[in-house]
């Protein structure tokens, strides 16, 4: 077998060099990485040709388990970073990946994750141009943690942000809620539940671009990761000092995800996603925005779920199927399975 990560791999000597060449250069085959320089120098002209704003983000990935139906820590790291850039109206271009590896982690596992990252990067049409690996003693980490940084380019006249919401705006979701959060909960195995639920982990760059093209005045976009759609809606409402009314009947949840949430006493609105776009557009653009998203596979189940209203103080209201109302709570912390 390929052996294990040892402290030597973290020493910066030949063992580190061999690991980087054998795993990362071999997998990513990117000129920038191959140069093994201490930084990647990127042609500014390429940026200037596409816009006047450099978008820059960072994210860390510590998912447990490392592999789950629909993805792994590697595809999650690439897509999560791509999505943070895409939802701010930027075209993602280059990524860096820093690995914190625990002593004793099988090298074959690292190779598998690197290959998954390469596939995800190619799919999202971005390049991994800088990387780093550090090793921590056994027990001081959980096999693999990944930190990323990402740069992209945006146009200043097209930068959606939650502070621009207006009463009458339409609230759109690009697909069903809760797939990732429930997939992870079940994949951990300690609840001993099985269902065919897969993470929605996917890049949203094409979807965001299609949306911005169909609707030049997108008010706000965000990928609904931890805290779920409920967290995003509450963040938007607070930032723009507006309220929202969401139609319960319009909220899309896949049947097995709804069943898992029912069994565990959880609310799909609070469950994490990794490929779900929440967008707010002027009311008159709603139909066109939906059509633009529905033309792409990652948006084919896009739907209108509610509207922005003026009511103050800002609150996110759920209109139940019965016509009554309740508040959609800003989730406190991680959703915990409950019996009561």
């Amino acid at each position: 077998d390929e052996g294990y990560i040892t402290l030597a791999h973290g020493s910066g000597g030949r063992a580190t060099h061999n690991l980087i060449t054998d795993i990362f250069l071999e997998t990513f085959r990117s000129d920038a990485l191959n140069a093994l320089d201490d930084s990647a120098r990127l042609d500014l002209a390429l940026f200037m040709a596409r816009g006047d704003r450099l978008a820059f983000t960072t994210d860390s990935f510590v998912v447990d388990p490392l592999f789950f139906p629909g993805g792994d820590i590697g595809s999650l790291a690439i897509n999560g970073t791509v999505n943070d850039l895409a939802v701010t109206g930027a075209q993602p271009l280059y990524l860096s990946c820093g690995f914190i590896l625990e002593e004793g982690t099988p090298i074959a596992l690292l190779r598998r994750i690197a290959q998954s990252m390469k596939l995800a990067a190619d799919t999202a049409r971005v390049k991994v141009v800088a990387g780093d690996t550090k090793v921590v003693p056994r027990g001081k980490g959980d096999q693999i943690y990944i930190n990323t940084a990402g740069v992209g380019v945006a146009r200043s006249n097209q930068v959606p942000g939650p502070r621009y919401l207006q009463p009458g705006d339409a609230i759109l979701l690009s697909g069903p809620m809760g797939d990732h959060g429930t997939a992870i909960l079940l994949a951990r195995g300690d609840l001993a539940l099985e269902a065919d639920i897969t993470s929605d982990c996917q890049p949203l760059h094409d979807l965001a671009a299609a949306l911005c093209e169909a609707c030049p005045t997108v008010r706000a976009m965000r990928d609904a990761t931890r805290g779920g759609v409920a967290a995003v809606l509450n963040e938007f409402a607070q930032t723009s000092r507006v309220s929202m009314v969401i139609e319960e009947a319009a909220l899309p949840v896949r049947p097995p995800v709804a069943a898992a949430c029912e069994v565990l006493g959880l609310d799909p609105l609070h469950m994490a996603n990794e490929g779900l776009l929440v967008a707010v557009v002027p009311g008159e653009f709603a139909a066109r925005a939906l059509m633009a998203m529905q033309m792409l596979p990652e948006g084919r189940e896009a739907c209108l779920v509610g509207h922005v209203t003026k009511a103050d103080p800002p609150v996110v209201i759920l209109q139940t199927r019965f016509g009554s109302e309740r508040i959609i709570e800003w989730p406190m912390g991680d959703p915990l399975p409950r019996i009561c």
Binding site: A192, L193, E194, A195, D196, P255, P256, A258, A259, A260, E262, V263
Partner: peptide, 8 residues
């Protein structure tokens, strides 16, 4: 089988 979620 709990509507698609299975458990012992």
């Amino acid at each position: 089988d709990l509507s698609g979620v299975r458990r012992s």
